[in-house]
């Protein structure tokens, strides 16, 4: 256990000094502030809470940026350490291989949480000052987006480990991480959309589509958050789709957690077989 904590602390230290992570956090903050500025204009002075609307925008932002930060943190975790010879040192010490994986995960999720909380926390604070009459529900909506964004990020941290354990070179791991991001965040949605347009009434659209949607943790995150925000009165245009789902859209949030469990387990299994 002390080994796990030592590894987590080490990863937090390295992550907090990583320029790429700083840059990504800064981008997250800039985008979040832009959304706050645009979202707090006079047009939104409707019955809906301003923070709720901003939360909807931030959820969409999260789908793109949070997996990117997560993969930036994790792609190097195993391949890079083998490359540099530090994994040999770690594994020669009495710490267990499972503790190495879980310690890294804990450390990376802490770094990610700090990045998300800085980005969205500061943006939320600005919104709080800028918007009059903030309701408690609005704060709750923002907290939900922050919490689920961290869960989404944790999923991609763990997915990044699997990619990193598959290869032995840092460069290959980086390319694989970019491919994963592109596929999960951009191409997957396009493919689903293509399937829907090709046959709007077919088996794909009615039976397969909802499950394929939640199978992708990024889409599951979006579905969960936008459904919750629709209930709060922000018109995201997502509710129309929610009615035809064969399951309660709230259950979608299970998807990232299942992904975390499976990919972490897979990483531990792969780690046991690594011969550094």
């Amino acid at each position: 256990m002390s080994g796990l904590i030592a590894i987590a602390r080490n990863e937090v230290r390295i992550g907090m000094r990583n320029k790429w992570i700083m840059l990504a956090t800064a981008i997250l903050l800039v985008f979040a502030l832009l959304l706050v500025l645009l979202g707090s204009g006079p047009a939104t002075s409707s019955s809906t809470d301003g923070l709720t609307i901003i939360s909807a925008s931030l959820a969409t932002l999260s789908v793109y940026l949070v997996p990117l930060i997560a993969l930036l943190l994790s792609f190097d975790a195993i391949a890079g350490e083998i490359d540099r010879g530090t994994l040999q040192l770690t594994l020669a010490s009495p710490v267990s291989r499972a503790a190495v994986v879980l310690g890294k995960f804990l450390g990376h999720v802490i770094v990610l949480s700090i990045a998300v909380m800085i980005g969205y926390g500061l943006a939320g604070l600005c919104a709080f000052v800028a918007i009059e009459n903030v309701a408690a529900e609005g704060v709750l909506d923002l907290a939900r987006v922050v919490g689920t964004s961290i869960a989404l990020g944790a999923t991609f941290v763990a997915i990044g480990y699997v990619a990193s354990a598959c290869v032995r070179q840092t460069g290959t791991a980086a390319a694989l991480a970019i491919a994963i991001w592109l596929f999960a965040v951009v191409l997957y949605d396009m493919a689903l959309l293509g399937g829907l347009l090709a046959d709007p009434e077919g088996v794909f659209a009615t039976d397969l589509f909802p499950y394929l949607l939640v199978a992708n943790p990024a889409d599951a995150f979006r579905l969960f958050n936008l459904t919750a925000l629709d209930a709060a009165g922000a018109s995201t245009g997502f509710a129309a789709g929610g009615d035809v789902l064969p399951f309660a859209p709230q259950l979608a949030i299970a998807s990232p957690f299942i992904w975390i469990a499976v990919t972490l387990w897979l990483t531990v299994v792969m780690m046991q077989r690594i011969k550094p």
Binding site: S2, T86, S93
Partner: peptide
């Protein structure tokens, strides 16, 4: 593993950590 200490042929420690932090990390492990 409790009895062995190892120095690989080529090892590059994390560039962002100081020497003391690096050694302290392995001391904890």
């Amino acid at each position: 593993r409790n009895a062995v200490s190892y120095l690989p042929e080529s090892v590059s420690f994390p560039k962002l950590l100081t020497g003391r932090e690096t050694v302290a990390f392995y001391a904890k492990l």
